[in-house]
Design a protein around this nucleic acid. Structure first.
Length: 606
RNA sequence: GCGCCUGUAGCUCAGUCCGGAUAGAGCGACGGUUUCCUAAACCGUAGGUCGUGGGUUCGAGUCCCGCCAGGCGUACCA
C-alpha cells in the first residue's frame, strides 16, 4: 500500500500540473492540528510566489482540478493558501481493513531498488568486557540493520559487520599479561623482573596450555599496564609478542585465537541478553584486514597521493586543517612502520565495496569519530575506490552520561560493564513486577522482567535524538508513565488481554469481515495513526533516526489507551465489537512490529 | 586558534536537513475519573523573550551573517 501522504502528493501534483504548475513541489504533510484536517498541502504558496499569482486564487484553481473525492471530504483552502484534507471515515476503514489483511508487512510496501548495505556496528575489543561505551553503537546499529532489512524487503540486502578490535599491540599485551600472571600463580608473589624479555618469559610456560576466562583476561591486561610502568622491559616484551603474532608464530597465534574465542563468546552472551542480532558470522575484525593493509599504502603511492611527513606516511586531503592551520594529514602508516585504524578502515571500505559489493556503508560510532570518518571517506573517494554510486555514511551519536553530566562511570570511577548493567536492569524490573503483580507465576515474572528491563535500557537510548548526549537514569527509563518501554509494553499487554478475555479466534474474526466502520473519535484517531506506520518506517529508514519510531509508537499507544478507556470492546454490540477488535488487532501488531524493529520484546501479560 | 555538535516550558526532550497556520510531548505541579476488557491507565488546568543581535521572506524555532555559553575534536590511540 502506498502511504497516504504519497497518494495525496500525487493527486496534488497532478492538479498543480493541470493549472500550469508542473514541477513544483506539493509539500504534503500531516497537519499539526486536527482543526486543519488530517493532511495539508503547502506547495501552493511556493508556486504562487514563483508565478507571482495570488496564492488563494491559485489554491482555488488547484482544488477545482483536484480529484480526491474517493478518499477525502471536500478539501478546504485556509490561511494564506494551505489546502487541508480530511480523510473520509469509510475510506480509512477500507484501507485499514486492507492493512489488517497483511499480517506480514502491515500494509507497508518494500522499497524499490534498494542498495546492498553494510552496517558496521558494536565493534568491541578483544580481551576486554563490553562496557557502556559499546551500548549505543550496539543497539542503534542493530535497529538500523533491522529497519533497513524490513524496508528493503526480501531477499535481504543488509550485511552486518562487527569490526572487532582483535589486532595490534594489545594482543601482545594480553599474552605477556597472561604469562606473568601464570608465573605469579606458580611461584607466589615472585617478582617477574628477572626475566627481562619476552623470549625468556614465554619459555617458562607453554602458551598453548594456558586456560583463562574473560575476567582473567581483562584483569591481566590491566596488570600489564601497571607492570609496564614499573618494569620498562615489559613494554618491549609486549612488542615482541605482538611481532611474533604478526609473523604467525604458532604459540602466539594459538594463544591469540583462544583469547579471541573467549572474548567473542562473552560478547555474544551480551548480544543474546540484549536481543541484538549480531552473530559470529558477522565478526570481521581488524585482523581480517591484516594482509590487505600494505595494499592500501601501495595504492595510495600508485595514485601519487602518499606523502611522507615527519616520518609518517600520509594522505593530505583538501579542507582539513590542523591546530596550527597547516594541512591536516590522514596518517596511514606510522613513522615506525606500523599501520593504524585509518589504514584498517580504508582496507575495510575496499573489501566492502569491492568484495561484498556494498552500495551503501553505514558506520555507527560515537560522534567523536566524525572527523576520522570524514577523512577516511574523502581518502577512499580520492583514491577512486568508491565512486558516486556508493554511499558512505557515518551515523554519529552522543555519549551516555551519569547524573553528574559526566561520562557514565561507577561510583569508584570504573567503566560500567554491560553485563552488570543489563543484569541490574532486569533485577530492577523484577522488583517492580513483584510489587505490581505478585500473583503471577515465577516463570512469567522472569519473562516480564527480562523484556521490560532490557527494553527500558534500549528504549531510553533510542528515544533520544542520536546526536545528543543523554543521562542514564534508571527511574526514568523504568517509569510506567511517559515515553518509555514499559508504557508501550503495557499498552500491548492490555490489547492482548482483550483477546484473551474474549477468547477471540483471530482467523475466524478476520474471515467474518468484509467491511469495517469507524465512528467514535477515538476509533478514527487510532485508525489514522495505524495507517501512518508505513510513512514512519520510511522516515526512519531514510533518516536513520530511531527516535522517530519511538515517538510514533508512543503516540499510537496513547491513542490506544484513550480508545481503551472510552470505547469498550468486548461489551459493545456485536458489529461494533468486531470493528473494535480489528482495531485492537492492528494496534497490537503495529506495536509489536514497531518495537520489533527497535529490537524490543513485547509480553502478553504484565 | 580552527572545525563539528548542542542551546526550545521548572526538569527531560520533539520540531531545524526540506521555512508555513495560535511552537508540541512527557515528567513534575495542581484538579478530576475506578459497580465497566489490566488505574503500570484516562481526562483536564497552569507553565515558553525558541541562547542572543541583525538580515532574507507574504511568512523564521527552521535559511544567512555576527556574538554568547557548554560539549567534543583538532599528526602518528581507537
Amino acid at each position: 500500500m502506498k502511504p497516504i501522504c504519497d497518494l495525496l502528493e500525487e493527486r496534488v501534483l497532478a492538479a498543480m500540473a493541470a493549472v500550469g504548475g508542473a514541477g513544483a513541489p506539493a509539500v504534503v504533510r500531516p497537519t499539526q492540528d486536527g482543526r486543519f484536517g488530517d493532511y495539508q498541502a503547502n506547495g501552493v504558496m511556493g508556486l504562487a510566489k514563483k508565478n507571482k499569482s495570488n496564492p488563494r486564487q491559485l489554491a482555488e484553481q488547484i482544488v477545482e482540478q483536484l480529484d480526491v473525492a474517493d478518499m477525502c471530504e471536500q478539501p478546504e483552502i485556509a490561511g494564506p493558501g494551505f489546502i487541508n484534507f480530511r480523510l473520509k471515515p469509510e475510506w480509512l476503514a477500507g484501507r485499514l481493513l486492507e492493512a489488517v489483511r497483511d499480517p506480514q508487512r502491515l500494509g507497508v510496501d518494500a522499497a524499490e531498488n534498494s542498495p546492498v548495505t553494510v552496517v558496521d556496528f558494536s565493534s568491541p575489543n578483544i580481551a576486554k568486557q563490553m562496557h557502556v561505551g559499546h551500548l549505543r553503537s550496539t543497539i542503534i546499529g542493530d535497529v538500523i540493520a533491522r529497519v533497513l532489512d524490513f524496508w528493503y524487503g526480501e531477499p535481504s540486502k543488509v550485511v552486518r559487520q562487527n569490526h572487532v578490535g582483535d589486532w595490534g599491540l594489545q594482543m601482545g599485551m594480553i599474552n605477556v599479561g597472561a604469562v606473568i600472571q601464570a608465573l605469579k600463580n606458580l611461584s607466589g608473589e615472585k617478582n617477574v623482573q628477572e626475566y627481562g624479555s619476552w623470549e625468556k618469559l614465554r619459555g617458562c610456560i607453554p602458551l598453548s596450555e594456558m586456560v583463562f576466562n574473560i575476567n582473567e583476561l581483562e584483569w591481566q591486561y590491566k596488570e600489564v599496564n601497571i607492570e609496564i610502568k614499573s618494569d620498562p622491559w615489559v613494554e618491549n616484551a609486549c612488542r615482541e609478542a605482538t611481532l611474533n603474532l604478526q609473523k604467525g608464530e604458532p604459540e602466539e597465534t594459538e594463544f591469540w585465537k583462544k583469547a579471541c574465542e573467549v572474548s567473542l563468546n562473552a560478547c555474544h552472551e551480551i548480544y543474546e541478553q540484549l536481543g541484538v542480532k549480531l552473530g559470529l558470522d558477522d565478526v570481521c575484525g581488524e585482523s581480517f584486514y591484516n594482509d590487505r593493509l600494505p595494499g592500501v599504502i601501495e595504492d595510495f603511492a600508485k595514485e601519487g597521493l602518499l606523502e611522507e611527513s615527519e616520518g609518517a606516511q600520509c594522505v593530505f586531503l583538501e579542507g582539513f586543517k590542523s591546530k596550527e592551520g597547516e594541512p591536516l594529514p590522514l596518517i596511514v602508516q606510522k613513522s615506525d612502520g606500523a599501520f593504524l585504524y585509518a589504514t584498517t578502515d580504508l582496507a575495510a571500505i575496499r573489501y566492502r565495496v569491492g568484495e561484498l559489493k556494498a552500495e551503501r556503508v553505514i558506520y555507527v560510532t560515537d560522534s567523536r569519530q566524525k572527523l576520522h570518518f570524514e577523512m577516511v571517506f574523502a581518502a577512499a573517494k580520492k583514491a577512486g575506490w568508491v565512486d558516486d554510486s556508493v554511499h558512505l555514511e557515518h551515523v554519529p551519536f552522543g555519549s551516555v552520561l551519569g547524573k553528574d553530566n559526566r561520562p557514565f562511570k561507577t561510583r569508584s570511577g570504573e567503566t560500567v560493564k554491560l553485563k552488570g548493567l543489563l543484569d541490574e536492569a532486569t533485577k530492577r524490573a523484577r522488583k517492580i513486577v513483584e510489587e505490581k503483580n505478585p500473583e503471577l507465576s515465577e516463570e512469567l515474572k522472569d519473562e516480564i522482567s527480562q523484556a521490560v528491563g532490557i527494553g527500558a535500557v534500549k528504549y531510553a537510548d533510542l528515544s533520544n535524538n542520536l546526536v545528543s548526549d543523554y543521562v542514564f537514569d534508571w527511574d526514568k527509563m523504568l517509569a510506567m508513565e511517559g515515553n518509555t518501554a514499559p508504557y508501550m509494553q503495557y499498552a500491548y499487554a492490555r490489547v492482548q488481554s482483550i483477546f484473551r478475555k474474549g477468547q477471540i479466534d483471530i482467523d475466524e474474526l478476520l474471515g467474518r469481515h468484509e467491511q469495517l466502520e469507524l465512528n467514535e473519535p477515538e476509533e478514527l484517531q487510532l485508525a489514522k495513526l495505524l495507517l501512518r506506520y508505513g510513512e514512519i518506517v520510511e522516515a526512519v529508514a531514510g533518516d536513520l533516526r530511531p527516535h522517530i519510531m519511538t515517538g510514533y509508537l508512543f503516540e499510537l499507544a496513547q491513542a490506544f489507551s484513550s480508545f481503551y478507556t472510552n470505547c469498550p470492546v468486548l461489551k459493545a454490540d456485536e458489529a461494533v465489537r468486531d470493528y473494535r477488535l480489528l482495531l485492537c488487532l492492528q494496534t497490537a501488531r503495529t506495536i509489536k512490529h514497531g518495537l520489533g524493529l527497535l529490537g524490543i520484546e513485547v509480553i502478553e501479560q504484565m
